[in-house]
Simulated scan of single mutants.
Amino acid sequence: MDLELFTEFRLVFGIILAILVLFLVLSLVPKGRDTVVTFFSVLAISISHLAIATALLIVENTFLEDFTLDGDSLTFYMFLGVVLLAVLNPIIYKLRNKSGRRRSYSFK
């Protein structure tokens, strides 16, 4: 019996990965005075996108069981990428934007 692949959520995982990669790039840029990206925004995006990706994977698993479809391994690897970036983004932001690096002393 040939099982069909279920790949409908691959695009959503790709969009989530793209957003987290964007925040990774923004986390690597040193924080300036008037920046929009803060630690709270990086943390909120990471947690919310991890929750969305986890819920999406659970829903996909339910579809796979109900309709006897075969899972897509690329989607699972994309989920692992989301987990990795969601954990690393806040850590990288904190390490890159330590308060000691941003201070400048003026001798007036």
Rank of each mutant, 00 (worst) to 15 (best):
G100T: 12
R101W: 05
L57K: 09
E4W: 00
N97M: 08
F76M: 09
Y77K: 11
I15M: 13
F79H: 11
A86Y: 00
S41R: 11
L43T: 12
N89L: 06
G81E: 06
I92E: 02
H49T: 05
P90M: 05
L26V: 05
Y105T: 12
L95H: 05
K31H: 07
R33M: 03
T35V: 04
L3E: 12
A53K: 02
G32N: 09
T7I: 15
G81S: 11
K94E: 01
L69W: 07
L95C: 09
R10E: 15
F9K: 14
N61I: 06
F76N: 06
L69N: 07
L22M: 08
L69Q: 04
V42T: 07
V37K: 01
I19R: 09
T35N: 09
A44T: 15
T38K: 02
F9Y: 15
M1D: 10
I52R: 04
N97V: 10
E4I: 14
I47D: 03
V37E: 01
V25K: 14
D70N: 06
L24N: 13
M78F: 12
L24W: 04
T62L: 15
I16C: 03
F63E: 10
S99N: 10
L17C: 10
S99T: 08
F107L: 13
V83P: 00
L84T: 14
L56H: 03
L20P: 01
R103F: 04
L20N: 06
T38M: 04
L22P: 00
Y93F: 15
V82W: 00
T68H: 11
V87H: 00
D70L: 15
S106I: 13
V37D: 02
A51F: 07
F67A: 08
L28K: 10
S99V: 14
I45W: 05
V82K: 01
L88N: 01
G71I: 03
L28R: 15
P90G: 04
L28F: 14
G14C: 02
L3R: 11
A51K: 04
L88T: 08
S27C: 14
A86T: 02
V59T: 12
L3Y: 09
A44V: 13
A18P: 00
T35S: 15
N89H: 01
F39T: 05
F23S: 01
S41M: 15
L28S: 08
V37P: 00
L24G: 06
L95F: 10
L74H: 09
S99D: 14
A53M: 05
G14N: 11
L56D: 06
K108H: 13
F67E: 11
Y105K: 14
F67K: 11
R101F: 13
I91C: 02
G32K: 08
D72C: 07
L20Q: 14
L84P: 00
Y105P: 00
R101H: 09
P30D: 06
L84K: 06
L24K: 12
R10A: 13
H49R: 03
F40T: 15
S48F: 07
T62A: 08
I47C: 05
F39S: 12
S99K: 15
K94S: 07
N97S: 12
D72A: 04
L50F: 11
G14D: 06
L24Q: 13
